[in-house]
Design a binder for these strands. Structure first.
Lengths: 208, 208
DNA sequence: TAATTTATGGCAGTCGCTGACATGTGACAA
DNA sequence: TTGTCACATGTCAGCGACTGCCATAAATTA
């Protein structure tokens, strides 16, 4: 049974409720048109409490992708050390998607809803790019550690930046319809990853 | 002689004055610690006027790099059509730096000051990356046009994204000292460009 | 049940940013 | 030169995001 108490369960519940309410409101009436007060009211929580769960208004939409980074880092740490860095990153990403595909239905729909809202709200898309910059630092640190390089190693930075770029392109919408299910998203990610791998010389991501 | 009138000259003057005052204040007391009111007061202008020149507070620091994009696009348009896209982008970037090196001393110092402030202010750095992603759309459109591809062509998008990534890494600080002069910056950009070119298969950026 | 921790609500206030209206200053023609 | 017009600026009122502070209510632990 769960070791966590009622308190913690309640917190996670309101957290998800805030995310769901926010995503629905964003989708229905637009991001900038909805106020934090509205989101808080929908969950019957004070606006002050909202900011105890999310530092900014955009965080409520970006928290899910941000969680993705944590699992990506975890998957990356699990990859064998002899694997070249870009390959390891690619496999970690694939594992992350698989994890999501095998997970809860509610989680999947929430993730897709978040992705959709982010994708056609410039401000949120900008915010997600912002977060990518932050997460790049952590990924660079991990890759440099794996490769035994200095923390500010240029090649490690290049590898990670290229990877996040490819991932970003993969997440962006293709065509007017957009991507509305996980398999299509996975295929799109696969396409960009293979495009990148085909474009690069063998052994490019390792110091010689 | 100048064809522009007194009115336009005054505007450009206050615009530069706002940028200079803002950069100095940001450098002295930090970005978030300085208010728009302070910047406006330093130039003896109403806060409302500030927002007539710059849409947001971060714009005042990012407007210079943003101007760079325009010249980059202009240089790109001047590159011969038979040149492969990534090569053309690289040469356009080099031309841009050369242009800056041959320009006014005041412009150079201002550019470097802006670069320095952006580089060690996370919020501004994130903002500059966000702008780069925005400008990607225009670059993709131009590259796709050059190559005779559809506007949402994946390869064109990949080429441009890779280019902006390389450029971004080039602009980032190396080591604790940072980059304080244009030649060092140019060298750093050259290093990342050659790293990228060495990593990629010949002909990767053209549809086969 | 009592004591302690911790989540929440309410409130006042700062700051980024905007719309509307009034005023002043350059541009241009008579 | 003068009068008219366009436009840059100042003022003010206001919204919404976000924060610090203190009181209160709920859950945890003894």
């Amino acid at each position: 049974m769960d070791r966590i108490g009622l308190r913690e369960r309640k917190k996670q519940k309101t957290r998800l409720a805030l995310i769901d309410a926010a995503l629905d409101l964003f989708a229905a009436q637009g991001y900038e048109a909805t106020t934090v007060d509205q989101i808080a009211a929908a969950v019957e929580v004070s606006p002050r409490t909202f900011f105890r769960y999310f530092a900014t208004k955009e965080d409520v939409a970006l928290s899910l992708p941000l969680d993705g980074l944590e699992t990506l880092l975890a998957e990356l740490a699990a990859r064998p050390a002899q694997e070249p860095p870009f390959t390891a990153l690619g496999h970690a990403l694939r594992a992350m998607v698989t994890m999501l595909e095998e997970g809860d239905l509610a989680d999947r729909t929430r993730f897709l809803k978040a992705h959709e809202v982010i994708d056609d709200t410039p401000a949120l898309f900008a915010g997600s790019v912002r977060r990518m910059v932050d997460s790049e630092r952590r990924l660079v640190a991990e890759i440099a550690r794996r490769e035994g390089a200095e923390p500010d190693d240029l090649l490690s930075h290049f590898v990670v930046a290229l990877f996040t770029t490819v991932t970003r392109i993969g997440f962006e919408h293709c065509g007017p319809a957009g991507v509305h299910d996980l398999t299509a998203l996975a295929e799109r990610l696969e396409a960009t990853l293979t495009l990148a791998e085909r474009s690069l010389c063998p052994g490019w991501d390792r110091a010689r």
